[in-house]
Computed example of a mutant assay.
Amino acid sequence: MILGIDSGSSAVKVATEQGVSSFPSCLGEWRERNLSSTFGKDDMEFEYQGEKGFAGTLAKYESEFLRQMMGSTKAHEDAKIRTLIAVHRYGGPQNEIVVGQPIIQHNDHEKQKIKDMLRGQHTITVNGVTKTFNINRVEVAAEGGAVYWALNTKAPLIRIIDIGSGTVNYATIEAGRYIDKDSSSLEYGAESTKSQNVNSMVESIIAQTSKKWRKEDVVLIAGGMAEEVQNLVSSYYKEAKAIKVPYVENGQIDFAHPVYANALAFLNIARGLYCV
């Protein structure tokens, strides 16, 4: 089965041929509970390689030591567990996946670390159901920039701003090629700072990107806050708009919320890589 998995620090977004789904990225310690309340469909207890823990909404409400690891790389154990839970929930016995990595650390060394930690056979138990599956192939795409490959566009120059919870990726694609000098990551995001001043965050993004980008450029905004910040971004970049990626669910074409833009892009890349 092919999957596009965006293992963000706020939510894990998954795209398959059946559609898109997500669950909270929260992880935390496991413990015996005297009062076993239910908090939602994303309550999860997991066990992997001898480690037991809570995940999703159960971790959010019942773990004392909640962790939602952020940063400029996804080459860490938390991202691995989030991804394996995603495959447990939405994958099959044999899987081929594409995952993401912030642009600032999208280099061969970090990408190989991610491939090595995910590729192979895994056994993980989620909510009492144990599954053993293989991840046969893994590729690592650039977060934000990959969104271009989910679009049907003939625009010669596309700028993309991808506002995540832990990082902001900004990318430039011209004639179907990355322009590295006009692309990078900002090491803050919608949930990674003490200040939650959205206006100031957008002003900072514009201050950085406008060093290379022009006001009249086509700018597409991805991420969970895309619709919220569209007007703020378009006050400078006149052609800025929140992106909605087309996808098929239950045989019908729909347009996904911008939060799924990376996951759907990863799925499209996976189709090109694996469906041959």
Rank of each mutant, 00 (worst) to 15 (best):
K215R: 14
I243T: 10
H122C: 00
I158V: 15
A256W: 06
A59I: 08
K194S: 10
Q49P: 02
E191T: 12
F266L: 12
Q18Y: 12
I179R: 13
I81K: 00
N197P: 07
F266V: 08
I81V: 14
D108N: 12
A11V: 07
G224A: 05
G50M: 11
I253W: 03
N231T: 13
K244A: 13
C26A: 15
S22A: 12
A265E: 04
V245P: 10
A242C: 05
I243W: 01
Y178K: 12
P102V: 09
G56K: 08
F39I: 11
L232T: 10
T193N: 07
S21V: 12
E29D: 15
I124H: 03
K111F: 00
K181E: 11
S25Q: 09
F266H: 05
A171F: 04
I81Q: 01
G50L: 11
N134E: 03
S234N: 13
I179C: 03
K131M: 04
I124K: 07
G120N: 03
T125M: 11
L157T: 12
V129D: 10
S36C: 08
F255V: 08
R89V: 02
E174L: 09
N152M: 05
A141Y: 01
N127W: 02
D217L: 05
K241D: 00
G251A: 09
L186T: 11
T130H: 02
P102M: 09
I160H: 07
A261R: 07
M1G: 13
D78F: 09
G189S: 11
K41S: 14
L3H: 05
F54T: 06
I161Q: 05
S184M: 08
G189T: 11
S210H: 08
G92L: 03
G223K: 06
K80W: 00
L151W: 00
A207P: 03
I124A: 09
G144W: 07
S10Y: 06
Y90N: 11
K241F: 11
V147N: 15
G166H: 06
E17S: 15
T83M: 01
S195C: 05
E96Y: 10
E110H: 05
S7N: 14
I160W: 06
G100Y: 01
E191A: 14
R177I: 05
S7H: 10
G144A: 08
P258I: 07
H109V: 13
G145I: 11
E139S: 13
S22E: 15
V98C: 08
K241C: 07
A265Q: 08
G50R: 10
A270E: 01
Q105G: 00
V14M: 04
L27W: 04
I124F: 02
A142R: 08
D116H: 01
G71D: 08
I206S: 03
N127H: 09
Y247V: 13
E29W: 02
T130P: 05
V20R: 10
E203W: 01
K13V: 06
K131I: 09
T153Y: 05
Q105P: 00
I124N: 06
V126S: 06
V138F: 00
E64P: 07
E29Q: 13
S185W: 12
Y48L: 13
K238D: 02
V168R: 03
S235A: 15
M225L: 14
N197V: 06
G128D: 04
G28R: 04
